[in-house]
């Protein structure tokens, strides 16, 4: 239960094609993350799967059965929205019970399921409150509760953490991951935050302008980005790029090095530069270095590095950590 197949799916709004023909296979039980910059079509894709938008052409199958023209309610999917979309006039209990009520369940069954969900999500103490009286994290849990009671074939999450503060976001990230471990239900998760993608996903789908740039596990994408866009998008801080002469030396149009793969030295190295800002975080040190050719590099170094503003520094990287791209931005080798 819970596989989703997209075949030659396209979507146009008027004359604007936001998703050119797209194929994707989401396996049962997988945690799939759609990631990409804003406007890349990831939310549209999710809404197509949900049935909140019609595909312009192509087909969507859920559990191998064509669902392209089935109404959202009948697809057996549950969705958690960015704004949580809780019903403000209903208590937490009624919010969670709503899909069950719509499905026509007996009141006793509804109560049992709602209580169980509230227990799992630690909502029992707030069950009779209205959404307006809850904190952001609690609202988020209610939204998830409303999704899990239906025992859907798959969960769809549309940037669910973007309205939470940083600390809470880390917590909820863990909770959603745990939920996935427990339920083993397929989850499709949309985010623009590559950290969320890396930490939660079994499979990441990187999107740009409606086109899938690469599909793979977090580490695959990190180690073997298919192109410059994926290389730059996955990993934090972002990969540093050099082109021109420095790249030609390595037989590439552009080369890229991750900040954590750069070693610094005061004496010698591959690239010479000047430290602009040094951020000493204790555990790590981030150096923002301006190279002699004018390009900017970010370096992630250990906490003991004693380099400061204005210091000259030489940076170098192991050959296996230098990513090479051709003029079409595709990875070489």
């Amino acid at each position: 239960m819970g596989s989703i197949t997209l075949e030659n799916v396209t979507k146009s709004f008027g004359d604007v094609e936001v998703i050119p023909p797209l194929n994707l296979e989401i396996n049962e039980g997988e945690f799939v993350v759609f990631v990409g910059p804003s406007g890349c079509g990831k939310s549209t894709l999710l809404r197509l799967i949900a049935g909140l938008e019609d595909v312009s052409s192509g087909s969507i199958a859920i559990d191998r059965e064509d669902a392209t023209s089935i109404r959202p309610a009948r697809r057996g999917l549950a969705m958690v929205f960015q704004s949580y979309a809780l019903y403000p006039h209903m208590s937490v209990r009624k919010n969670i019970a709503f899909p069950l009520k719509m499905a026509g369940l007996e009141q006793a069954d509804i109560d049992k399921k709602v209580d169980a969900a509230a227990n799992i999500l630690n909502l029992s103490d707030y069950i009779d409150r209205k959404p307006g009286q809850l904190s952001g994290g609690q609202r988020q849990r209610v939204a998830i509760g409303r999704a899990i009671v239906r025992e859907p074939k798959a969960f769809l999450f549309d940037e669910p953490l973007s309205n939470l503060d940083a600390a809470l976001r880390v917590n909820m990230r863990l909770e959603i991951s745990e939920l996935h471990q427990d339920l083993k239900t397929t989850m499709v998760y949309v985010t623009h935050d590559q950290v969320e993608a890396m930490t939660m996903a079994d499979k990441i789908v990187v999107l740009r302008a409606g086109v899938i740039e690469q599909v793979g596990s977090p580490l695959e994408l990190y180690r073997k980005p298919a192109n410059k866009f994926v290389a730059g998008f996955i990993g934090s801080p972002n990969m540093n790029f050099l082109s021109g002469e420095a790249a030609q030396k390595h037989g590439a149009h552009t080369i890229g090095v991750r900040p954590e793969h750069l070693a610094c030295s005061r004496e010698s190295g591959m690239w010479k530069g000047t430290v602009g800002v040094a951020e000493h975080l204790g555990s790590d040190t981030f150096l923002y270095v301006t190279l002699n050719d004018g390009s900017n590099f970010t370096v992630r170094s250990d906490g003991n590095v004693d380099l400061n503003h204005g210091d000259t520094v030489y940076l170098s990287a192991e050959p296996e950590n230098i990513y090479r791209f051709d003029e079409n931005e595709q990875a070489i080798g």
């Binding site: 959202p72 309610a73 704004s83 979309a85």
Partner: peptide
């Protein structure tokens, strides 16, 4: 917000249920 009505739709509400209950 339109999302709330979409949530209702995902929750299995028919058009009438969406208008009447939400």
């Amino acid at each position: 917000p339109g999302e709330i009505l979409e949530a209702a739709r995902m929750d299995g509400a028919s058009l009438w249920a969406e208008i009447i209950h939400v």
